[in-house]
Design a protein around this nucleic acid. Structure first.
Length: 290
DNA sequence: AACAGCTTCAACCGCCACCAT
DNA sequence: TATGGTGGCGGTTGAAGCTGT
């Protein structure tokens, strides 16, 4: 599938459709609030590989202390917001790419049942995933899946309560089964997580899902920080040699996307991130085993 | 092959919370 | 306390790709 093609070499990014916002009139400069970034010659639309390179180079060298000033300093004709978004959603080296796996999807559903559309909070519990990515995945995949299952994606209640047949597992059951399967070992060893549940239970913004009453032990574990940080268990099990850089162990090459090769070259040549090779080698070895 | 409709997702927009003054 | 600047968030858009006819 093409959707994982990344910025470097992505067909979406090499198009010439990007536009330059014309300078505002003198009157518009005088009247009203100053725009978030001076729109003088600010470019919009898809990012080019060259812009990506400039942004990554600058951030890796200098960090991103001030997004507003960054474009100028980095030599980009972009709004600071646009730079931040590009970096957080696309260029950050610790991002996982590819579709969400089964466990991640279940976790998103579970978290959404409790947090609602607070995508950034949900994303925070899924290492290497961005709020935008999760939001998109929710809207394009999970929503439909839930509707198909007869579950209201907003309330997580059955769409027609009386319709739910007994042989059809509810979302909660499915969640528990999946999570139980995935985290069997983790769960049995945890006895100290209940204190963190208490903290979470005080969060008045968190909607109470039906799952919360079913299995208190399970739920207490799920909502413990320990579990939530352990969620990275399956995503970050390998490639620890790159942990300083925040790289996840699973690489996009897993789904056969070509962007990884580009990025790998890009990072190696330009930033000396040779550890990417190690990660990739591991991944390829694992792929061979399968 | 050509077209239309659908799907996907990167990027944008507007609003809001937080912080400094 | 009021005000302005900044970053972050969630909703929405639109271009590119895909699929069906």
């Amino acid at each position: 599938m093409v959707h994982q093609l990344w910025g470097l070499g992505s067909p979406k990014n090499c198009c010439a459709s990007a536009i330059i916002i014309p300078p505002p009139s003198e009157a518009s400069l005088v009247m009203g609030r100053q725009p978030c970034c001076d729109k003088l010659g600010v470019k919009k639309g898809p990012w080019t590989a060259e812009e990506d390179k400039k942004l990554v180079t600058f951030i890796l060298t200098n960090g991103h202390c001030c997004w507003r000033a960054l474009p100028k300093l980095a030599g980009l004709r972009r709004c600071g917001k646009s730079c931040r978004l590009r970096w957080t959603n696309y260029l950050r080296p610790d991002l996982k790419r590819g579709l969400l796996n089964e466990a991640e999807e279940q976790l998103v559903i579970d978290l959404h049942a409790r947090l609602g559309n607070r995508w950034s909070k949900i994303a925070a519990k899924l290492p290497g995933r961005t709020d935008n990515e999760i939001k998109n995945h929710w809207n394009t995949h999970i929503k439909k899946k839930l509707i198909k299952m007869g579950i209201d994606p907003v309330t997580h209640e059955p769409l027609h309560e009386h319709v739910t047949p007994p042989e059809m597992p509810t979302l909660v059951d499915t969640e528990h089964q999946e999570l139980s399967k995935t985290n069997d070992n983790l769960i049995t060893s945890d006895a100290n997580s209940s204190s963190t549940l208490e903290n979470n239970s005080t969060d008045e913004h968190r909607p109470l899902g039906p799952a919360s009453e079913d299995d208190p032990l399970m739920m207490s574990y799920i909502w413990s920080d320990e579990f939530l940080s352990n969620v990275s268990w399956s995503f970050l099990a390998q490639g620890e040699e790159c942990s300083e850089l925040g790289f996840s162990s699973t690489t996009p090459s897993e789904d056969g996307s070509s962007w990884w090769l580009d990025y790998e070259d890009f990072m190696n040549e330009d930033f000396g991130f040779n550890c990417l090779n190690e990660v990739k080698m591991e991944t390829l070895e694992n792929d061979d085993k399968l």
